[in-house]
Design a binder for these strands. Structure first.
Lengths: 149, 149
DNA sequence: CTTTTTAGTTAAGCGCGCTTAACTTTATGC
DNA sequence: GCATAAAGTTAAGCGCGCTTAACTAAAAAG
């Protein structure tokens, strides 16, 4: 055993620290936006999936379709999302981020990124290369695991 | 420029993927426990800080002392935390995790760790070493940044 | 020693999100 | 085509967490 610190332990330490720090900023940002966690989570879901139906939202958060519809209402009133009919099935109302919604999500992500950039920019070139490769390895491994459970 | 993928980008990709996956499991676990996010967050705060006063809880979540007190009540009734007088200042009621509280937090963390271990265990020895060192570098850099803003 | 400040609790009231139930509209089964 | 199912909306009602206000107990200030 050459490794003085096991990979499991180092990943846990990094994760604990990162989550602790990152969630603090995240909660603050969501609160400032005046939205509920659930509401903001819908915006994040739309950031990744572009368009989702109301039922999908409900299932994801374990609430009734009625609640999901009301949740969407709030976001439409705040001009953060838009409703659109699914041309393939006119019962389905697809929701998607509006311009304001996109901007809000990007601002939130930018805050998280700023903190991370502060860390990486404090490293020297050699460490940067090491870290970049290691993260690429981790990301790839995670992807394989998600796609082939 | 040797790096095909910049460190900023690789850190963002890993973080996006990790947060997406990890928060899904976390929300599920908190919901199953029957607790609010705020309530569970207090347990996490106690996991890291051992003992905190009621006012500290309120400040952290941006709620009134009254709300913090009521929040603590719920957790005491659920036998997840215990109240204790601060011997140095008897006005202060310190709260700390009970046995059940500790167990619940550890179970929650264990779920997150299990997913992470799944990733790391899929790597070969060489990649494990690379990743472990990179995460050590990152954690250290983050610590320096937090301690000396 | 008295006054003021601080930590926390309790009670009343309110806002808000979730649920159930009834309803509309569109799609599917036979 | 007609009946049934599915997606979403609307309304009424309820539970729950937060706030303000009044209060107790202990420490600090003077």
């Amino acid at each position: 055993m050459v490794e003085t610190v096991s990979i499991s332990k180092s990943l846990r330490q990094w994760t604990d620290l990162f989550m602790h720090q990152s969630m603090r900023g995240w909660n603050r940002f969501v609160k400032e936006s005046g939205l509920t966690m659930a509401q903001f989570s819908v915006l994040m879901q739309l950031h990744y999936k572009k368009q989702v139906g109301i039922s999908e939202v409900g299932e994801r958060f374990g609430v009734s379709p009625a609640a999901a519809s009301q949740l969407a209402d709030k976001l439409v009133q705040a001009d953060l999302i838009e409703r659109a009919e699914d041309p393939a099935d006119r019962r389905v109302k697809l929701i998607q981020l509006s311009q304001r919604g996109k901007k809000l999500v990007e601002t939130g992500l930018a805050e998280r990124y700023r903190w991370m950039d502060g860390i990486t920019s404090s490293l020297d070139a050699q460490d940067k290369a090491k870290v970049a490769e290691a993260l690429r390895i981790l990301t790839e491994a995670a992807h394989s695991l998600i796609e082939a459970p």
